[in-house]
Amino acid sequence: MSIMELLKRLTGNRNTSANSACSRLRMVLAHDRSDLSPAILDQMRLEIMEVVSKYLELDHTGSELSLETEDRSTALVASLPIRRVRKVAR
C-alpha cells in the first residue's frame, strides 16, 4: 500500500471504484469457488435455523448465511441474532 492509498483509505475515501470492485469480487468468488447456488444456501440457512431454534429463540428476519473468502480458502459464516435462550428440558 502507498501513502496515497493509505491517506485515501484513512480519509474515509472508501467509495472508490477499485474498492467496490474488490468487495464485489470477494463476494462472487466465494460463491464461484464453493459452487453453491443461492437457493441451496438459503435452504441450508433454514435447516440450520431449525436445529438452532431447539435451543435458542432466534430472530428470523435478521439471520444470514454467507460465504467469505480469503486467499484460496472459503468459510461459511452464519449470523443468527438471538432473541432469548430457551430453557431446554434435559
Partner: peptide, 18 residues
Amino acid sequence: MVEKLDMLSIDDVLDILA
C-alpha cells in the same frame, strides 16, 4: 487509474487470486 483508486491494484489482484 490505480493511483486514483479507480483500478484494482496489483496488491488487490494478488490478494484475491493468491
